[in-house]
């Protein structure tokens, strides 16, 4: 649980910093990437609960 939360927090904080630094037009392309990353992290955490591993 703690690991999952830490991962979510780190992803959010880093992407916030990145969106600050990136120019505005790149932001639209960056957000889907972030969503993919978050999805992978969530699915990975769920599969780990059941004893499997994505990677």
């Amino acid at each position: 649980m703690l690991e999952f939360l830490t991962g979510v927090l780190l992803l959010t904080v880093m992407s916030t910093i990145l969106t600050l630094l990136l120019p505005d037009e790149l932001e639209g392309e960056f957000i889907p990437l972030l969503k993919i990353a978050m999805g992978i992290w969530i699915i990975h955490s769920i599969t780990r609960i059941f004893g499997h591993s994505l990677f």
């Binding site: 927090l9 992803l11 959010t12 916030t16 972030l34 978050m38």
Partner: peptide, 21 residues
């Protein structure tokens, strides 16, 4: 611990509204 997690999720969804929890 669940309450602390709820606070964290709230903050994350406000900080980055496109990835909302």
């Amino acid at each position: 611990p669940m309450l602390a997690a709820a606070i964290l999720f709230d903050i994350i969804s406000r900080l980055f509204p496109s990835v909302s929890f």
